[in-house]
């Protein structure tokens, strides 16, 4: 599916992506038909509880899903300037073509800045490696560029820090270095997988500010994966709400927050702690827990936890995505046709 390359057309289009894990006990449908678009200069927030397939979606885009996971269906179209768009889902994981995309055009920022660096090499070594992989830079040039990058992301004394090991840096600094590493080759798409989860609140705000600033400067398309609705409200332009590998609701951030349609989205919003709430009131929680992957409920996967559950409807069929105004979508039998 080649769409016209109009200005404002998405850099990355994911269509009906399916990534399954073939285990001895059965098939785990980690990502089960997710579609979304990412535009330059805009932020797409992907939100959901842990285990809903957010991270696997990100890894599928880069072709780095761990075995036995595999993309079994769908398309991932990357548009690159005047060239023909390329479907990343068809590229073999370890092919040169896929590796040229990884880090160069689409870069990833990880959740745990501590565990995501190797402690046997200096941070400089790990940044320079990315630069030299995708360019002809000499070691000297690559080092200068790495220092400049560290400076950009607000690492003080970059000339000194570049020769330090990750364990010598604080959590916030490590995440800044991680961002510098992701920016090493000037990617057009940046995927941040829970970039602030492991950080304390003040550092979180600084890192989010940094990401927003970098996005504005460079016109990055940002995919922000988080379970934190607060982060979504602050950062995202568009939102995809995921549940059990499916996108249950999509829309502009204002619509999601002010007129949520899917019961799951509403439940997530209710569970945000509010500073306005009366003291000592219990925070609303989402009843139940995510079903075991081998024990997927029939029908709408959310129905056992849903407060709008309709017997004989929701447990029979999977609701299809229903398009709404302004590009929004919702997959719920409360709207549209019922079986």
């Amino acid at each position: 599916m080649v769409e016209p390359r109009a200005p404002g057309s998405p850099i990355l289009s994911v269509r009906d992506l399916k990534t399954y894990f073939q285990l001895d006990e059965g098939i785990v449908r980690a990502v089960d038909g997710v579609s979304f678009d990412v535009q330059a200069g805009r932020t797409l927030g992907i939100v959901g509880e842990s285990g809903c397939g957010k991270s696997i979606t990100a890894r599928s885009i880069l072709g780095i899903v761990d075995k036995p996971g595999r993309i079994v269906g769908g398309e991932i179209w990357l548009r690159r300037g005047a060239d023909q768009p390329v479907d990343l889902a068809t590229l073999p994981a370890n092919s040169a073509a896929m590796r040229a995309v990884r880090g160069k055009e689409i870069a990833l920022i990880f959740q745990e800045p501590m565990a995501s660096f190797s402690h046997y090499y200096t941070v400089g070594n790990q940044i320079i490696e990315a630069i030299r992989e995708h360019s002809d830079a000499t070691p000297r040039q690559a080092r200068d560029r790495a220092i400049a990058l560290l400076d950009t992301v607000g690492v003080p004394q970059p000339e000194r820090r570049i020769d330090e090991y990750p364990f010598q840096l604080s959590g916030g600094l490590r995440q800044r270095v991680m961002i510098a590493m992701a920016l090493a080759c000037d990617p057009r798409v940046l995927i941040a997988d829970e970039p602030t989860t492991a950080l304390d609140v003040t550092t979180q705000a600084q890192i989010l500010d940094l990401l927003r600033g970098l996005q504005q400067q460079r016109g990055l398309a940002l995919i922000l994966i988080t379970h934190d609705m607060g982060v979504i409200a602050e950062m995202a332009d568009d939102v995809v709400v995921m549940y059990l590998g499916r996108a249950v609701e999509k829309g502009k951030v204002d619509a999601i927050f002010h007129a949520p349609r899917h019961p799951y989205t509403r439940a997530l919003l209710r569970s945000i702690p509010s500073i306005m709430a009366a003291p000592r009131t219990k925070l609303a929680t989402l009843g139940g827990s995510i079903p075991h992957p081998f024990n997927r409920p029939a029908g709408c996967p959310f129905h056992p936890r849903c407060d709008a559950f309709m017997t004989g409807v929701c447990d029979r069929a999977v609701p299809a995505a229903l398009a709404g105004p302004d590009g929004s979508e919702v997959s719920c039998f409360l709207y549209g046709e019922r079986p």
């Binding site: 890894r59 880069l62 780095i64 761990d66 370890n94 590796r99 040229a100 995309v101 990884r102 880090g103 160069k104 870069a107 990833l108 990880f110 959740q111 745990e112 565990a115 995501s116 660096f117 190797s118 046997y120 090499y121 790990q126 490696e129 990315a130 992989e133 995708h134 991680m178 590493m181 090493a184």
Partner: peptide, 22 residues
């Protein structure tokens, strides 16, 4: 299975070098 291996892969480094270096 450590995250830093995924980081290295995400940089686009060939698999054998990812394994041997990290």
């Amino acid at each position: 299975r450590r995250p830093y291996v995924v980081t290295a892969r995400a940089k686009g480094i060939p698999e054998y070098r990812v394994i041997l270096k990290y």
